[in-house]
Write a protein that binds this DNA or RNA. Structure first.
Length: 287
DNA sequence: CGCCAGGGCTAGC
DNA sequence: GCTAGCCATGGC
């Protein structure tokens, strides 16, 4: 990989296995939108950024080289060898087919507070509506950012959500999830749950910590661990993955717990990456 | 009207 | 430990 700065952009060449469309539309994040030119604009680290890709060259607009090194390289998981990860699934025909379809997916390392609240909102919900609610929450409580004449909002910090109540969240129309957001803010503010420790904790202990928050069960916890804490062994089982795993491997009766155990044994250390290929393939093809 | 969406909580075994 | 019924909201 070669990295250079050009005005307010960072350009990385020699990148293999990165496809912005598959990465940003595969369901792991809710704040990236595709532009007319097929680039993606999103907000993270309190900045509006535009990412485009041509052949093996990725352009990230509106960041400095220092910000790339300290934040975006890790955010985009560019320091991980996906060829090696894929090689660990090479004996599995189903994953092979799904990864050929969703090639270039990177498992993002998102900001954990945003990821937690977003996936609390995601429960029993549809992706377009999750995006709407997360966007509205940012507009109501997050900091305003101007970029190229347009207004964006950063995802609110814990401090900015300090005053939320079920009543104040009513405009979100998040339904029964509003009380879970309030509980998360309360437990994080009191220190009962500490997000700063999650990524350095062992998988099981980290999962138990997150599940102390109301509205965070095994699936939401796994999403947070996989998409913002670098736990690639996490294997979130939602309705799509459950159907897929039942159809391909385990049969109709398989429970969530059985699927999680099978995934850990069958896919191993990088089960979460296989999960994302399978989820994206199933959802895009309406299986 | 129905069913479904990146599930989780609670009550009752 | 497990399952059944319930939960807001909106799209189809």
């Amino acid at each position: 990989m070669k990295i250079r700065q050009s005005e307010n952009s960072v350009i990385i060449s020699g990148i293999k296995d990165f496809n912005p469309k598959h990465t940003f539309l595969c369901g792991q994040c809710f704040r990236w939108d595709e532009e007319a030119d097929s680039s993606f604009t999103g907000v993270a680290f309190s900045k509006v950024v535009n990412i485009s890709c041509k052949d093996d060259e990725v352009t990230i607009k509106n960041i400095t080289l220092a910000e790339y090194e300290s934040q975006w390289k890790h955010y985009l998981d560019l320091d991980t060898d996906y060829n090696y990860i894929k090689s660990t699934f090479s004996s599995d025909e189903h994953v092979k087919k799904a990864q050929d379809f969703g090639w270039g997916i990177k498992i993002l390392n998102q900001e954990i507070f945003e990821c937690l609240i977003s996936f609390i909102i995601s429960t029993q919900n549809a992706i377009p509506r999750i995006k709407k609610i997360v966007s509205k929450l940012s507009e109501m409580y997050g900091s305003k950012i101007e970029y190229l004449g347009k207004t964006f909002y950063a995802f609110p910090t814990l401090e900015q959500l300090q005053s939320v109540s079920v009543e104040s969240l009513a405009p979100l129309k998040a339904g029964y999830r509003a009380q879970y957001i309030v509980d998360a803010v309360y437990k994080l503010s009191s220190g009962e749950v500490k997000l700063a420790d999650i990524s350095s904790m062992p998988y099981e202990a980290a999962k138990a910590q997150l599940m102390k928050i109301k509205g965070v069960g095994p699936k939401v916890a796994d999403c947070v661990l996989l998409f913002s804490a670098g736990k690639k062994e996490a294997f979130p089982v939602d309705v799509w993955v459950k159907r897929t795993m039942q159809a391909l491997y385990l049969g109709d009766g398989a429970t969530q717990k059985q699927i999680e155990e099978f995934a850990a044994n069958h896919f191993g250390t990088y089960a979460g990456v296989a999960q994302q290929y399978l989820f994206y393939y199933a959802r895009e093809n309406k299986l």
